[in-house]
Simulated assay, not measured.
Amino acid sequence: MLGVLLASTMWGLSSVFMKVALPGMPPFGVAFIRVLLSGLILTPAALLRARGRTAPEVPASGGRERVHLAVLAVTTVALPFCLTAWAQQQVEASLSAVLHATVPLWTLGFAILMLGHRPCGRQLGAVAIGLLGVAVLAGPGSHDLTGCSWGGCLAVLAASACYGFGWTYMRRNLSHRQPLYITAVIQVGALLVLAPLAAATTDTGHVELTPVRIASLLALGVISTAGAELLNYRNVIRLGPTSAALTAYLIPVVGVSAGICVLGEPLTARLLIGAAIVLGSVGLAVQRRHDREKPSDRHGRTKPAWAE
């Protein structure tokens, strides 16, 4: 389980790294650097894995598949990275980490709409409880969460919805492709989307990159994005999807702890109660009907808990 703890720590620290880097660079610039650094690692990793296979994955040749990959590049990388970076200017890193824990709930909702999944009463209840948790975190009276704003909270929730949509879209249209291959390709696609946005919104004369901010940018792209993706891919293959999914519960814990210890953010009763409600709803949403671990295939693919 050390791999799960390490992956959760890598992902959970992303909000802190962004918070530190943002004063020196606008959000689109931070998102661009993040994708550039992660792409420089994930693309060679995908090529090395393909080289060792008897039937290596080849670049997409069909127009329809290119469209699917382009959709994923926007919905799972470019758009959520920009939304999250912008939101970090409006909300605390700890609150952002908790709101990102709603990804499984969004995934469940899109599975109902796109895959014809029939939710059970437990899962419908999980969605309702999750909405309650979000209301506690960002609803009336949330001024006691320093720096919290409705716009920032909505941006984080929109980024989480993007992930839920993208992962469901990938399962529906690209399940024949190796996940690591898809991840590498969409990083390149997102880079093409973000490059003009970053260039148009970044005034080099006002970029203030201190050594600490540069280190945060490097850590964001290399550790919290590429490193976490590769380690999670390894965890799914070695431990199975159920064990690897524990990261959904641990990321908010890491994010909140880092926000308090590193950034000096306050620990409020509202944050604790809201986090407990959200994580409880996620537990209900992804709970399996049996305890037996379903093995993943040689690509690391498996049927997710919400699709049972």
Rank of each mutant, 00 (worst) to 15 (best):
I251Y: 00
C153H: 02
V103M: 15
C162F: 03
L79S: 09
G264S: 10
A97R: 00
L271S: 06
C162R: 06
G221L: 02
L279R: 00
A70P: 04
R171P: 04
A195V: 06
I182W: 04
P27M: 14
S257L: 11
E208G: 13
P119W: 05
L279S: 02
T75D: 01
A275N: 02
L79W: 07
Y249P: 12
A215P: 07
H299E: 14
I182K: 02
L22I: 14
C162P: 01
I214R: 11
N232Q: 13
V35R: 01
G141D: 08
V188F: 15
A305Q: 11
G205Q: 12
G280P: 14
S8C: 06
L263P: 15
G300A: 08
S14H: 03
F110H: 10
L131H: 02
A200F: 10
C153W: 00
T268S: 12
E65Q: 11
A159D: 02
Y233A: 15
V278A: 04
L180N: 07
S15T: 13
A269C: 05
G221R: 04
G227S: 09
L263F: 13
R234L: 07
A159G: 12
G259W: 12
L272D: 03
D297T: 10
V262C: 05
L220D: 09
A226W: 05
R51F: 10
V58P: 00
L220K: 10
G221Y: 02
L131N: 02
V236C: 08
G280N: 05
A50I: 03
G205L: 11
A159T: 03
T204Y: 06
L174P: 05
I223D: 09
P27C: 14
V77A: 15
T75S: 13
I186P: 01
G125H: 05
C153I: 00
P59I: 05
P266F: 06
A85P: 08
A200V: 06
L217T: 11
S281T: 04
I273F: 09
Y181V: 11
L267A: 13
I260N: 04
P27H: 07
I41V: 14
T75W: 05
I129M: 13
A195L: 14
P26V: 11
T242Y: 10
Y249G: 08
F17W: 14
G130P: 04
L131M: 12
P80T: 13
R234D: 08
I273E: 06
L105M: 03
G29R: 07
E265S: 02
A87T: 10
R238C: 04
L217R: 12
L197A: 10
T183Q: 15
N232H: 14
S96M: 11
V134E: 03
C120V: 09
L284V: 00
